[in-house]
Design a protein around this nucleic acid. Structure first.
Length: 417
RNA sequence: GGAGGGAUGCCUGAGCGGUUAAAAGGGACGGGCUGUAAACCCGUUGGCUAUGCCUACGGUGGUUCGAAUCCACCUCCCUCCA
């Protein structure tokens, strides 16, 4: 189908969100006819979502902006089971307390991207623990379990490699796809939800839900997946030196977040602008036509827009300003991570390698010493070669000592109490 | 319950009595080249104010001058049989 009738499908296809759909034409017709209720599930396996989850989040956002109703399903119940899809080993089991804590922490981010409320197209958030924890085993097996073929489940791509490698797949995990399928049906009953979306790794789970819906409630359900986002050079997207790029400011500072987008590979800029910002396609087309070092302008726009959505306008501006002074003017700046140090320590002189460790630029002292030996350490923008160099008051510039590890990682040490 | 196989550094994976802080690859970090990109080349990659000391090859004991390597027991995993 070349030109979808619905604004929703047109938007997500144009912006690169569409990977697979159970019935594109029928879904298009339905979306064109009126509001569709659709959901995406987020398990509570970590205290925050990371940029990998931004594709589904942005998908919900576009859905809402096109006049439909998004449901954020917190996987408080499914997290107790653990999705085995495309994983070579079981996830560590989290206890209820950890799941509850993760859930509380994760739910905060959605208010940045969606508008919640009671209206027709307001987003709602529910937790599948509400109905999953109350299930009775035998009745569940009889009403739901009988619609699933073990033969078919074993042939799913999502568990094939686990089985092929003869890695253990516990019965607990094996239930995940059934539970997720049941979620879909439950959301249909409760909210009239007819669309489940998710990453491409969720395709099998989603299809099971669609089929279960046909058998249990006789309502046509739809499934839609987004592509797995990799970088132009083939790596998984969303990792940096410090690990995953989290959406929670406490786990990944806005500065690191901004830097992550700023460091996007050339070949990814256009695609990322479509996926991770609200900019109009026409603007994106203009930005991605830039060549050579001009692409850096497009990367700044990407960083600003993505940061604005996640952390707000003020943070985005601050990061952009910090980047300008740090990289374009080469001066120390307030936006850099700051470590305070008792004045007395400066008076007696702080050994260089210790300073780098303290500022978080090196994991251990040995690591810091290697950094200095390798010529990657700078003090106020001057390369230092002596690991034992004493940093003192005399090194303060504008009230701070600026340390750098490599070209990109900078930190300030300021005297204090 | 029985018979085999396995557990090594961030990951994969060699080693099978000393010269092994442990090959090789990946990843990561640093340097060079650049545009805060990619690719490529080089270096580093357990800790410690350090020509040395300490901690490490699933756990605990043992054999030995000496163990990741041999033995015993334990834990966990895999395969096959019941």
């Amino acid at each position: 189908m070349s030109s979808p009738a619905s604004e929703f499908l047109r938007t997500i296809i144009d912006r690169g969100f569409m990977h697979q759909c159970t019935d594109t034409q029928a879904l298009d017709a339905k979306a064109a006819a009126g509001p569709v209720v659709g959901y995406i599930g987020f398990d509570c396996t970590a205290p925050s979502l990371h940029v990998g989850s931004m594709v589904p989040i942005m998908l919900l956002r576009h859905m809402q902006q096109c006049g439909h109703k998004p449901i954020v399903l917190m996987g408080g119940g499914t997290t107790k089971v653990g999705d085995p899809s495309f994983r070579d080993e079981a996830r560590p089991l989290l206890d209820d307390e950890a799941i509850a804590a993760n859930k509380a922490s994760i739910r905060k981010v959605f208010s940045r991207y969606l508008s919640f409320g009671d209206g027709d197209t307001d987003a709602v958030m529910v937790d599948n623990d509400e109905w999953l924890s109350e299930l009775l085993y035998i009745p569940f097996l009889r009403t739901v379990g009988r619609h699933f073929s073990v033969n078919r489940m074993l042939s799913m791509d999502s568990v094939k490699s686990r089985l092929a490698r003869e890695q253990p797949l516990s019965f607990l995990e094996f239930n995940y796809m059934i539970i997720q399928a049941y979620d879909f049906v439950e959301l249909q009953r409760r909210f009239g939800c007819t669309l489940q979306m998710g990453g491409s790794d969720q395709w099998g789970n989603i299809v099971h839900g669609v089929e279960l819906g046909r058998r249990l409630v006789d309502v046509p359900l739809f499934g839609l997946t987004t592509p797995l986002i990799t970088t132009a050079s083939g790596a998984k997207m969303g990792k940096t030196a410090k690990g995953a790029v989290w959406l929670d400011a406490g786990m990944c500072s806005p500065w690191d977040f901004w830097q992550f987008w700023r460091n996007t590979e050339d070949g990814d800029v256009g695609r990322f602008l479509r996926l991770f910002t609200d900019l109009a396609i026409a603007d994106i087309v203009r930005l991605e036509s830039l060549e050579g070092s001009e692409i850096n302008e497009a990367k700044k726009v990407l960083a600003n827009e993505a940061t604005r959505l996640c952390h707000g306008e003020d943070e985005a501006r601050r990061c952009a300003a910090t980047a300008r002074s740090t990289f374009e003017k080469g001066e120390a700046s307030r936006g850099l991570p700051v470590t305070t140090l008792p004045e007395a320590r400066l008076d007696e002189g702080l050994v260089a390698f210790e300073a780098f460790q303290l500022a978080g630029l090196a994991k251990t002292r040995s690591d810091a010493r290697r950094l200095i030996r390798g010529g990657g350490a700078r003090l106020n923008d001057t390369v230092i070669s002596d690991e034992f160099l004493k940093i003192t008051r005399a090194d303060l510039k504008d009230g701070a000592v600026k340390l750098s590890a490599g070209r990109k990682r900078h930190a300030l040490i300021v005297p204090g109490s």
